[in-house]
Measured scan of single mutants.
Amino acid sequence: KEQQNAFYEILHLPNLTEEQRNGFIQSLKDDPSVSKEILAEAKKLNDAQA
C-alpha cells in the first residue's frame, strides 16, 4: 500500500521531467521497502524545480 501511494504521488508531481519520474518509479519497483525515502526525494526535487 505504501508503495502504491508513493507511486501515485510521484506520478502527479508536476515539476518532474519524464526522465526523473521514470527513475523514481523504477527505484520504487526495484526496492519497495524504501518507498518513503524515494517519495521524499521526489518531492524535494519537485519543489526545487518549481
Rank of each mutant, 00 (worst) to 15 (best):
D31C: 03
L45P: 00
A6S: 07
N15C: 07
S35N: 07
A40I: 14
Q26C: 06
Q3D: 15
Q3P: 14
E19N: 11
S35C: 04
K1H: 15
G23C: 06
R21H: 02
L13I: 03
E19F: 09
P32Y: 11
D31G: 07
I25L: 08
D31S: 08
E18P: 11
Q49H: 11
D31K: 13
V34F: 12
A42R: 00
I38F: 02
S35F: 14
Q26K: 05
L39G: 02
N46V: 02
E19W: 07
L16Y: 00
L28V: 06
A50S: 13
K1N: 15
Q4H: 15
E9G: 03
S35H: 15
K43I: 14
Q4S: 08
A40G: 07
Q26F: 03
H12E: 11
E2Y: 01
Q4N: 07
P14A: 15
L45E: 04
L45H: 03
D31T: 09
K44G: 06
H12S: 11
L28P: 00
N5V: 05
V34A: 15
S35D: 15
L11N: 12
H12V: 09
A48H: 15
A40K: 12
F7H: 15
D30T: 10
A50F: 05
K29C: 06
P32F: 08
R21F: 03
L39V: 14
L45W: 06
E2H: 07
Q3Y: 09
N15F: 12
E19S: 08
A48F: 11
A6K: 05
F7K: 04
L16A: 00
N46K: 01
A48N: 10
D47V: 11
D31W: 13
E9V: 05
P14E: 05
E19Y: 04
D31H: 15
I10S: 01
A42I: 01
A6T: 10
K1E: 15
A48W: 05
L45R: 07
A6E: 15
Q3I: 07
I25D: 01
I10W: 01
N15W: 12
N15E: 04
R21L: 05
F24Q: 00
D47R: 07
E9F: 07
Q4V: 14
S33V: 05
E37K: 15
N5M: 10
R21I: 08
D30L: 08
K1M: 15
E37C: 07
L11A: 14
R21C: 04
D47I: 13
H12N: 09
S35M: 09
D30N: 09
E18L: 10
F7V: 13
L11V: 08
N15Q: 04
D30Q: 15
A40N: 12
